[in-house]
Amino acid sequence: MHVTPYLTYDGTAEQAFQHYARVLGGKIELLTRYGEAPAGSGCDDLSEADQRKVMHVSLSGKDFMLMASDANALYPYEGVKGISVSLNLESANEAERVFAGLAEGGKITMPLQATFWAESFGCVTDAWGVPWMINVPKQG
């Protein structure tokens, strides 16, 4: 089994995923808009603005996959609640780079630091309201 976070955005999924591709080193494998859905699929009555929004996007990297879509008039945006995307990285240097990239335009909620369970751990909410936990496990 492989668990894949599926995020929802308020019209900014494409922008967020382009940023994540740069920061996390992944590749956008698929990006489909509501306006590309076949006739009769339930998207026909969406506004022109909603038709341009992302219906599905997937980003894959060496050991991860993220997926997302934009909310629309049928499924309004409710924000990200009660969850964080947790990244386990191999080195403190990589954690610092990823943490800084995710913090661009966002808010650091816990600076990267050594903890009793991790070589380095920190929390940040990115510019799109997604909470992230960055962790480098202690070795040995």
Score class of each variant (00 low, 15 high):
39 A>P: 09
32 T>W: 03
91 S>M: 06
118 A>W: 03
35 G>T: 02
60 S>D: 06
23 V>C: 05
31 L>R: 08
49 A>I: 13
104 E>H: 10
107 K>A: 11
59 L>K: 06
25 G>M: 12
89 L>W: 00
119 E>K: 12
129 G>M: 12
109 T>C: 02
73 A>T: 14
70 D>H: 10
62 K>W: 00
28 I>S: 09
110 M>P: 01
117 W>L: 04
128 W>L: 05
42 G>Y: 06
140 G>R: 08
50 D>F: 09
58 S>T: 15
23 V>I: 14
125 T>D: 08
121 F>S: 01
58 S>I: 07
46 L>Q: 10
85 V>P: 08
65 M>W: 00
127 A>H: 13
72 N>H: 12
33 R>I: 01
35 G>R: 04
2 H>K: 15
87 L>Y: 08
103 A>Y: 03
17 F>I: 08
84 S>G: 01
96 E>P: 01
51 Q>H: 11
14 E>T: 12
121 F>N: 01
135 N>E: 06
106 G>V: 06
127 A>I: 03
85 V>E: 11
61 G>K: 08
57 V>Q: 03
10 D>K: 08
84 S>E: 06
42 G>A: 13
132 W>D: 11
76 P>N: 03
21 A>M: 09
88 N>Q: 10
83 I>R: 02
61 G>F: 03
113 Q>H: 10
130 V>I: 15
125 T>R: 12
11 G>D: 11
105 G>I: 12
34 Y>A: 02
